[in-house]
């Protein structure tokens, strides 16, 4: 144990260059605690404390603070104590429910699409040998492009009057669409009014989903590619000898072996999708157009435009709980099917 303590002390010394006298005292304290039966706990806590302190200040404390704020009414500050009333108001509020639906449509659209497309690209890149590095860089480019700058380009492409997409559609004889300015449901438009307008995401939301799929695919592709290259070649070769075609190979070998990567991307993708702000704000200019206000924009408006701190904090807490709950559900149901070896 004394050896372990000395290692820890040397580690600290190399980082913060403590004077030898202090280090010797610290060493003696840790050794004494170990001798009295505390085991490795003091050393472990000492090592964990910097990370825990940072997490406490920047994650845990804001979470608790947000919950505390959510118990108060008033505007531009904390007014009177209202208990859980802000939560009740949120549950009854039509705009909150509409923002929640927009968020759910968005998550349901962007996560599966991103995973499927980026897996396809990664698998394609994995299979080719010439120009893989170049193509990987090209597919990664959207991810490192500023979302706001890219959104400006997409806004121009989707412009109903002179955007490239409508010009192309007109060229092939299809009527122009309003794209980002279209609050009607995408299904309503596709089925020419057969499906009610309020069913499914608005066309404007579909545009935002497409933008984010494009923007996030590069990151997921690189992660998938790393996972694919880690799969032992012998497994594939054995499957090939047993007569497996490409799709059976993917279904029975590649995907199970890739399941930790897939699981990681699923968890991260869902959390990120719930918290998306940039693309919504940049593509819609933060406007209150129906069908494009997700929960984050809703919270933003409550805080920064209307001054309802307590109510905004309540919605933020609800969103956090929803994310935690969904992550636990994913962990429970999907996590069991992940092969780690």
């Amino acid at each position: 144990m004394q050896h372990t303590c000395a290692n820890i002390i040397h580690l600290f010394q190399s980082i913060i260059a403590l004077p030898d006298t202090i280090l010797a005292k610290l060493d003696a304290v840790l050794f004494e605690l170990h001798r009295r039966g505390w085991g490795d706990w003091p050393a472990a806590l000492l090592l964990l404390s910097p990370a825990f302190l940072i997490l406490s200040v920047f994650v845990l404390a804001p979470m608790v603070s947000s919950f505390y704020m959510s118990l108060f009414g008033g505007r531009h500050g904390l007014g009177h104590y209202v208990g859980l009333e802000n939560y009740v108001i949120a549950m009854r509020n039509l705009e909150f429910r509409s923002s929640l639906m927009v968020t759910l449509y968005y998550v349901a659209g962007v996560v599966p699409l991103s995973l499927t497309i980026s897996f396809s690209i990664a698998y394609g890149l994995y299979r080719i040998t010439i120009g893989r590095g170049l193509l990987r860089s090209i597919y990664f480019l959207p991810y490192i492009t500023s979302a706001v700058a890219a959104a400006m380009i997409w806004r121009a492409l989707f412009n109903p009057q002179n955007g490239a997409i409508n010009i192309l559609l007109n060229y092939i004889g299809v009527e122009s669409l309003n794209w980002l300015l279209e609050p009607h449901g995408a299904l309503y438009i596709i089925t020419n009014g057969y499906i009610p307008s309020n069913w499914g995401p608005s066309l404007a939301l579909v545009c935002i989903i497409l933008f984010d799929v494009w923007h996030s695919c590069g990151f997921m592709t690189v992660i998938f590619l790393a996972g694919l290259t880690a799969i032992p070649r012998e497994l594939e070769e054995a499957a090939r000898i047993d007569g497996a075609g490409t799709f059976r190979l993917i279904r029975h070998v590649t995907l199970p072996m890739l399941s930790p990567t897939l699981f990681f991307l699923l968890i991260v993708g869902v959390i990120k999708a719930f918290q998306t702000f940039n693309s919504f704000y940049a593509l819609t200019h933060g406007s209150s157009m129906p069908g494009t206000q997700n929960l984050i924009l809703y919270i933003y408006a409550q805080f920064y435009e209307y001054g309802y701190w307590g109510y905004g904090a309540a919605v933020a807490t609800l969103l956090m709980l929803a994310i935690v709950l969904l992550t636990l559900i994913q962990w429970h149901f999907v996590g069991r099917r992940v092969h780690y070896s």
């Binding site: 706990w41 964990l48 825990f52 404390a61 608790v64 603070s65 505390y68 500050g77 904390l78």
Partner: peptide, 22 residues
């Protein structure tokens, strides 16, 4: 022994709560 970090946690939360209150 599990309560060793509790004071740090409480202190950091207090800073935020005080900062965000009146």
């Amino acid at each position: 022994r599990h309560h060793s970090l509790f004071p740090i946690f409480i202190a950091s939360i207090s800073v935020f709560v005080i900062g965000c209150s009146n």
